[in-house]
């Protein structure tokens, strides 16, 4: 098993190289003046010249690429003009916020979508099936920034149930000691239930926004693959052998139906990491998405580049994880590897 995982890690290498090349190209082969981008909008011509030297933009592309990779290897993504910090440090402090939000959204999505999809398939044509179809189509049609605002209006302004959409904690709470970086977990570790409650209250609306978005593709795929599994010949055999409905649905149909769903998770992550940027902006969430958006507006390019690269590496790793998970479920992949 370990050697298989190692082999899978190796297969991710070409993808990572591709990612690095693309981010390099995005920053260096611009139609505009790269140095001007990096120097910021208020830079003098001398400052631009200096940046050009510093970035080595006066050298040939391959040479630039080598130094770019060297800097990457040292963990150097440049510095942010607006925060004055190195990009790596900024991203490191803000990443847990994004990760906590995205994971919360994903978990919410899966918890609702998978049972919904299964029920819809098992009771094909019933009201729950129609509900599932409506949810699946409506969910992918919802712009997350719009659904987030609607939730804010309803639960904050109208009902007053939710706190104002201003970050991870209200002003009266202090952040728990950082262990995992996830406020929910850290506050529990510190047995600070007041902070936990506050963090939870802040998290719930943005997480629901993301969850609503994530659940559509998962529910759709669960329903479709469950339907396919239920009409498959091996389920017919299981039925003809008199197995109980539970065994037929769970052991035979469900486990097979989960294979395409696991594959879909890759796409769902892609959507979620993108939607995350928008949701962070709506809820003033101090994650890397809002960091990148702020930098974009200020034409501060190093953070944007660092953000794109971080997201891509994260995503490649998530896909790897999904790949390994797939191998655990499906013996066909396991043995052939």
């Amino acid at each position: 098993m370990l050697s298989q995982i190692a082999r899978r890690l190796l297969t991710a290498l070409p993808t990572l190289i591709g990612v690095i090349i693309v981010t390099f190209l995005l920053t260096r082969v611009l139609p505009g003046d790269t140095a001007a981008y990096f120097a910021g909008p208020a830079a003098t011509p001398q400052a631009i010249e200096e940046v050009k030297k510093k970035l080595g933009l006066d050298r040939s592309l391959p040479v630039q690429f080598v130094s770019y990779v060297e800097a990457l290897a040292k963990g150097d993504l440049g510095a942010s003009l607006s925060t004055g910090q190195t990009v790596v440090k900024d991203i490191r402090t803000r990443l847990p916020a994004s990760a906590e939000l995205t994971l919360a959204g994903l978990v919410l999505g899966i918890v609702v979508a998978v049972p919904l999809g299964i029920l819809a398939a098992v009771r094909q044509g019933s009201w729950i099936d129609h509900l599932c179809r409506v949810v699946a189509t409506a969910g992918v049609s919802l712009p997350v920034f719009f659904s987030g605002l609607l939730l804010v209006y309803l639960f904050y302004y109208r009902l007053g149930w939710a706190p104002p959409p201003m970050g991870r904690l209200d002003v009266f709470s202090t952040a728990p000691n950082s262990i995992t970086g996830f406020y929910l977990i850290d506050s529990l570790i510190a047995r600070d239930f007041e902070t936990f409650r506050a963090a939870f209250a802040q998290l719930i609306l943005p997480a629901v926004t993301l969850g609503m978005f994530a659940l559509a593709p998962i529910a759709r795929m669960t329903r479709a693959s469950m339907l396919a599994a239920l009409s498959s010949e091996f389920v017919r055999t299981a039925k003809a052998s008199g197995l109980s409905t539970r065994a037929v649905i769970v052991t035979y149909a469900f486990r097979n139906a989960m294979l395409p769903v696991v594959t879909t998770l890759g796409m769902v992550f892609s959507f979620l990491l993108g939607a995350n940027v928008l949701v962070e902006k709506v809820f003033a969430w101090p994650g890397i998405g809002s960091y990148a958006v702020d930098a974009l507006i200020k034409s501060d390019f190093a953070p944007v580049q660092g953000f794109v690269l971080t997201m891509a590496i994260l995503y490649v790793m998530l896909n790897l994880l999904i790949d390994i998970l797939y191998g655990v479920i499906d013996p066909r992949v396991r043995i052939e590897a």
């Binding site: 498959s232 010949e233 035979y252 097979n256």
Partner: peptide
């Protein structure tokens, strides 16, 4: 028992 025996068995069990 059915035609196409391979498809008649659960592929991942």
């Amino acid at each position: 028992i059915f035609q196409n025996p391979r498809a008649a068995l659960n592929p991942i069990r």
